[in-house]
Amino acid sequence: MVQTLINAISLGSIYALVALGIGLLFGVLKVINFAHGDFITIGAFALIIPSSQAAAEMGIGLMPWPLVIAGVAAVVVLTALAAEFLVFRPLRGADSATVMIASFALGYFLQSSLLLVFGSRPKSVNLWSQLNVPVVLGGAETSLLQIIIIAATALLIAGLGFLMRYTSVGLAMRAAAENFRMARLVGVRANLVIGAAIALSGILAAAVSLLIVVQTGVLSYRMGVPLMIFGFVATVIGGMGSLLGSAVGGFAVGIVSVLAQTFLPESARPFRDAVVFSVVFLVLMLRPKGLIGGGQRGERI
């Protein structure tokens, strides 16, 4: 039971990080960035030397761990900021549908670029495999990695909470998330707030990249897509526009997913995701604004 719980929280942590990354940018842009999953993929591929060879050769991934984290974060944040400059900024003032489609296009562009450089075959990599050792916690056997995933998520959420609550850029982001036009009318710089939001979502994406690569040991140019879908769903059921909602939604989706995997009869397990999405459907029928029904409406910019 404890083991199932740890599995659930650990998977929920990953989804919560993805959902927060999506939710942060949604807060200020009022648009879902469908390329967020591809930011995660970029972070994973940043570990290896660009090559279409089947065997992956570690690049950044060979460095001491603080440099690996910094390196991957830098690559993803730079990609995210480039996306802001080249894709989102020129579309300021365009309607949401246009920006959303542009984010899809950006996602496909990133995937195709990875395909071009690294090839289509999945690559196996070995990053920090020593973290996959079993540990016994509360009588249940789990892995050190799962504990680290949960701890890292807790740390990132606490850091994000601190930043939003106590720093001037966090305050500006909260004001902008509530009413972007008014925030600008009291002098909040639109580009600064959006830049900060996308950079932070890049940092969260980089964290997911690392955690996923350590857990699965596989790189594939579409690896971010399923994460994006679950993260998006988590953002929606949590309550669009609420960061707390994104985190809660992420944990909820992870927990339901693991419970379905554990308690469904063996023959029904391939339909685990269908169960998860049915629960999502049910939640939205009962609470259309999501679990944390913030759902602030704000001006598009």
Binding site: S168, L171, A172, R174, A175, V186, G187, R189
Partner: peptide, 9 residues
């Protein structure tokens, strides 16, 4: 915070 956000900006 309403006042500070305007001051900071």
């Amino acid at each position: 915070e309403n006042l500070t956000v305007a001051a900071g900006a």
